[in-house]
Every structure is written in structure tokens, then in C-alpha cells.
Design a protein around this nucleic acid. Structure first.
Lengths: 348, 348
DNA sequence: TCGGTACAAGAAAGCGCTCTCAGACCGAAA
DNA sequence: TTTCGGTCTGAGAGCGCTTTCTTGTACCGA
């Protein structure tokens, strides 16, 4: 059976468009998908019929046969947090994720691919994995920065195309995009040294994150090479609050610090508050360098000198690599490393 | 990993599960969908076959017949902003949206419904509308707070179930959830008056938002009723930065203000900075009341006294109303109004 | 005029699932 | 034993689309 009468009020189907245009369903399909082998006149007629009927393709039917959903997931994995309001609050409050989303969306949009944002904690992984297996998306951008997070491996084992936001803690044959964390830390150290600081210290990110380890280690080992051993460090949590309390603790234990590298702008913002609250002037008494160059750097007083991480570009690159992988699934994984740069403002 | 024979790396289909279990496809379907009329023994066998084959239903095929996608969109519409990094940054930096997402996710999850977050500006509306028409989602949670935003009407005309986050500016037969804005403003005014303030002022949100208008109007008209006419107001933009500059401007023009109502916590945070930077003590010289009771209220120094808006609960309610509407499309639209409450901390 | 070549359009076979409907089976009542 | 009513399972028709395969037509040179 071919002709199928229109059921009142429903969306029109391709058959109805075909009938309106006086052609076959196959031809309508060809027009919609831009097949070259359609006569210009017929194409015209079909397009008019599409407009007149207000036809919109049904994505379920289409992806049933194409095996494509034209959307990819952005999975934001924070294993340790409980999946509650404060968890989502942190994600929706950290400019980092906004930049990731912006970069990925920008790269995906020209290809008409939608981004499905999925925040998840460890209690929630099976939900996410099921979602991915069900074929909702063609691929995954995975933001995972904790060392013990099992999600990258699990996603990899699913066999679904994926790109991870950072070098996986344990070797995994997966594509990833990262920034040279150690170089960033070194730029900060160089700058602090260059402006005359001699008693350096750092507030690191959570040490279960490879990126935090790399920044801390890069900072310390560069300084060690310049004769500065045992640089004090306090562990922070990448929040504004955490930066503030870490700074208080650090200055309590090491009141003579004159140069501070804070492993994220958000923490630096909090640290600046604490430092100034303790009566130190920035940058005269203590110079402060952040990391990220996020919008938080401009919320600071004084404006924050920081290490720029091109997060938008990195997310866009993740999206590009993912799309290439989706187009050619057998392609070998590739990793792309971006270079950080020093952005000098007022705080150092 | 479970054994997964299947056809060369492909996902197994329901037919294969049926064959493995020695039953028909229909029975497998019944087991999966929890139909009661399946013999316990057979159910058991089928479930084992599902586990062994590693079967996962194909959502495209399923939703082709059920006409359900089991996901809803959370559309965040900010018509005036360009769709770029700073736009997304604002969305991903304002705790309000995190709370919305948290509340909606929490309500949706027990029903196994996924949330697709879609930020959009006016240049982007047609993308969103197309996405909605294509049947990607069963319904829409629409966060739209600008008076002239055409999206609520457009979504409504699509005929797709929708719930809007605030009373639409022009009457529209659509469900919405809101907070009693005027009451909130009044609570702030009462509290400031109650602690002895006599020269009140306010920093409002953008005046093209009905919620901003209501808060401003509610504040002023309550005070007018108490004999305070012409309360000064400055328009802000709901950002921390904007709150700071608005406060500077306000205090420049009205240096004698002793009680300030700021229409969002984020702005209040900035205002607090400005006020203290100008040498006024909070709350002794100037008492400050915010609005929202978001996480920003706890980032402030001193801690912010504010009007609590139960955003998570409101978003959850939006989700509930939406699900009811999806289940019964002919149901009349309903509107739910929540009551704000005063949360007293340190700033007033 | 005829056979061969191109190319455009149609017919029809599925994609993997749900769901109606009919049939099989079983125990109880006649 | 037969018949009836009820319960559970299987067969099969589609959901709306893409895509292969086939057919039809136009055009060319011999």
C-alpha cells in the first residue's frame, strides 16, 4: 500500500508531500536530502509542496534507518559529588563549563548537530551509559578530570565514538584534547620570578585530578630547577570559597609568601579576597597568578593576571575530532595539545 | 563485560533476544515494557536472554511507534544576547539556571525522562523550533523572562506541550509556574523598614522583564502606601558586575541611602562590594536585601539577607505539570504560584 | 530504424520496535 | 465428554523514513 490518507491534525508525512507534489516518496526524500539527481523543476515542485504542507521530517523514522541521531552528548562527570542541587550548582556556576558548551556548540552547529548536556556523578553512571547505548546520540564529548573516574573506560568499552577532555589517567586508546598543564604552571612561575617574587607558594586543584597534579608538579619542578625547593602548596577544590579558605590556611602557615600561583581563576578570586582581607596588598605585597583566563579573572579586584587556557577552542576541537570519528569510526584516536599563554593584568 | 554475540559488533535486536529465549518478539517486548500478563517463568527466561545478549532497546524504533521520545527540552531563552561565548557564560555562571536544572532533573529522573538543555537567543529561535517540531522531545520547559520574547507564543503555536517559567507578558493559554514577585519585594521593604531604614532605594533587574517590573513595582507601591514616595531605583542587568556599577551609580546620586533592595543575589554580591568600597559599613550604614537565596548569597561578605525563591521546587513543579500535560494533552493549562520567604542573615 | 548508454523517477524492501488480533491452551461448568 | 470463559503467546501489520533495484525515457551513433 502506498497512499495513506492524512490523519487529521497530525504532522504530515512524506507520503502526503509526495501526493501533493505528484511524485513518489523516494523523490521527496531525495529532495530533502539534497540528492543531485533530481530534475530542477521537480525539485522546485517538491519544495513548494513541502512548504505548503508544513512538512517536517520525523527524526525517529529517519534515524531508525540511517542509524544517526545527529546529536552528541556532552557528559560532565564529577564522580565524587552527590547528584543534587549543589552538584549542579557547582557545574552551572563554574565558567569553565560555559566555555566548554560554547565552544562545542559553535563547532557543532554548522553541521546541524545538537548537543545534549548530561551532568553526572558516580551514582548516576549507569543511567548515562544506558542513555548512550540506546542510540540517543552518535558520539560523546566527555568532560572527566578525576583520576579514578571509571566513566572514560566504560564509555570506551561501549564502542561509541568519544573524545575526552583531558589525557586519561590510565592509558586508554581514546582521543583527547588537553592543554599543556605543566607549561602553564611554568609560565606562572617564570612570571612571578620575573617580577621579583622569591617566596612562592601555590594553591592547587584537587589532587585526584591529573590536571591539578600536572600544574602543581610543573610549578614545583620548574622552581626546583631554579633553586627553589619545597614550595608550599595547599590543596583547593576549584571553587571560589575553597580558594578563599585555602589562601587563609596557606598564609596562616606561611605568612611571608610574596608570590602565589592559584590553579584556577575561580579559586584565585576567593584567594584575592582572603589575601586582601588579611591586609596584604596585591600585587605589591603578594603577587597572584591564576589559571584559566575565565570570566572570573575579570570579576577580580585587582584584575587577575592568569594563564590562559583556550577552553572554547579546545571544546571546538573536541567536537571536530568527534565528528571526524563519527564519519570514520575506524580512524585511529588522536590527541591534540593546546599551548597556554600568560595574560598579564594587575594582580601580578 | 557480558558476552555479546550479535552480528559483527552490532547491537542485538529484539528478534535475537526472542530467538535466544525461544519466544516471540512480542513476548520480549512485553517483558521489557512490564506487561503484567507474562508468565513468571517465561519472564525469567527472557530476562536472562536479555542479559546474556546485552540487549538494549533501540530508541528510534521504539519512538517511531510510540510517538514518545522520553525526553523534554529545557529551553533557556535570552533574546537579546548574541549567541556566543559570553552568552553561554552568563547562563553557565548564574546560579539560577543551575537550580532550575537541578529541580527539573530531580523531578524527571524517577520517570526516566531525559532533559535536553537548549540555550537560545533570538537569532537562534528557528533552530529551536525546528528541533521541537522534529519530535526530538515530548515537551518543553521554557525559561523565558523577557517581555518581548516571541518564543513562548511560537512554542505554544507548535502545539507541543509546554510549561513556561513565568507569567507570560501577554495573555497566552499556556501553563506556567511563578513566584509571587510583588510579595517578595514587599517582604524586603517590610524588613528594611522594620530594622529602621528610612531612606530606601532599589536596584532592579532589566525592566523588559515582567519579573523585574513586578519586584520594582511591588517594592515601590508597598512603600508608597507607607508614606515613602519616589523611592530611587537604578536598573541593573542581573550580573555581579552590573550590580556593582549600578550600586556605584545609585550611591553617587543618592549618598544618603540606608536601605537597599537588590533584585537578585548576584547583583547584591556586586553591590555589596561597591557599597563597602565606598566606605559604608553593611548593615550598619546601609542594609542590603537580595532576591533569590541562591548560592551567591553565601558567597557574600557579610552573608546576604535575601528573599528566598524556591527555584528548585518551582522547576520540579514545572516538570510535573509538563508530564501531566504530556500524559493528557487536552488538559487545561494551569498556573502555579509559589510564595517567597525572607531569609535573614547578616546584611540586613 | 535499431541497440546501447545515461540518467531520472518509481516500486518496494526493510530499519527495530509496539500492539492488535487471533489462536492455543487450560480448567470449570454443563 | 463437550462447551465456555479466561489467560497467555504468536503472527503480522504497521510507524515514517532511506535506499537499492528496476523501469522508463531520452539521446546518441551506427
Amino acid at each position: 500500500m502506498t497512499t495513506r490518507p492524512a490523519r487529521g491534525g497530525q504532522h504530515p508525512t512524506m507520503d502526503q508531500v509526495a501526493e501533493a507534489a505528484g511524485v513518489s516518496r523516494a523523490t521527496v526524500s531525495r529532495v530533502i536530502n539534497g540528492a543531485p539527481s533530481v530534475d530542477a523543476k521537480i525539485r522546485e515542485i517538491v519544495q513548494r509542496a513541502i512548504a505548503e504542507t508544513g512538512y517536517v521530517p520525523n527524526v525517529a523514522a529517519r534515524s531508525l534507518v540511517t542509524r544517526k541521531s545527529n546529536s552528541v552528548a556532552l557528559v560532565i562527570s564529577e564522580p565524587d559529588r552527590p547528584f543534587d542541587s549543589s552538584f549542579l550548582n557547582r557545574i552551572f556556576t563554574d565558567p569553565y563549563f560555559g566555555r566548554i558548551t560554547a565552544g562545542a556548540t559553535g563547532a557543532l552547529r554548522p553541521h546541524d548537530i545538537h548537543l545534549v548536556i548530561i551532568p553526572t556523578d558516580s551514582t548516576d553512571h549507569h543511567h548515562v551509559l544506558r542513555y548512550l547505548r540506546q542510540g540517543h546520540v552518535d558520539g560523546v564529548l566527555l568532560i572527566s578530570s578525576h583520576e579514578l573516574d571509571p566513566l572514560p573506560r566504560q564509555v570506551h568499552e561501549l564502542g561509541i565514538p568519544a573524545v575526552v577532555s583531558a589525557r586519561p589517567a590510565s592509558p586508554l586508546a581514546v582521543s583527547f584534547v588537553d592543554v599543556d598543564q605543566r607549561l602553564g604552571a611554568r609560565l606562572a612561575a617564570e612570571h612571578l620570578l620575573g617580577r621579583g617574587c622569591r617566596r612562592l607558594a601555590t594553591i592547587s586543584g584537587p589532587l585526584d585530578m591529573p590536571s591539578s597534579q600536572d600544574r602543581l608538579d610543573g610549578f614545583r619542578s620548574y622552581l626546583a630547577g631554579r633553586g627553589f625547593a619545597d614550595v608550599p602548596a595547599v590543596e583547593g577544590d576549584f571553587t571560589r570559597h575553597g580558594g578563599e579558605s585555602s589562601a587563609r590556611r596557606l598564609l596562616g602557615e606561611h605568612p611571608d609568601v610574596d608570590g602565589l600561583f592559584v590553579a584556577s581563576d575561580l579559586m584565585a578570586e576567593g584567594a584575592l579576597l582572603a589575601v586582601q582581607d588579611l591586609g596584604r596588598r596585591v600585587p605589591d605585597d603578594i603577587a597572584v597568578v591564576g589559571f584559566d583566563d575565565s570570566s572570573a579573572a575579570l570579576d577580580c579586584r585587582p584584575l587577575l593576571t592568569t594563564i590562559r587556557q583556550p577552553v572554547e577552542e579546545m571544546a571546538a576541537e573536541m567536537a571536530e575530532v568527534l565528528m571526524a570519528r563519527i564519519a570514520a569510526p575506524n580512524r585511529l584516536p588522536r590527541s591534540v595539545t593546546f599551548q597556554p599563554t600568560l595574560v598579564i593584568r594587575e594582580s601580578a
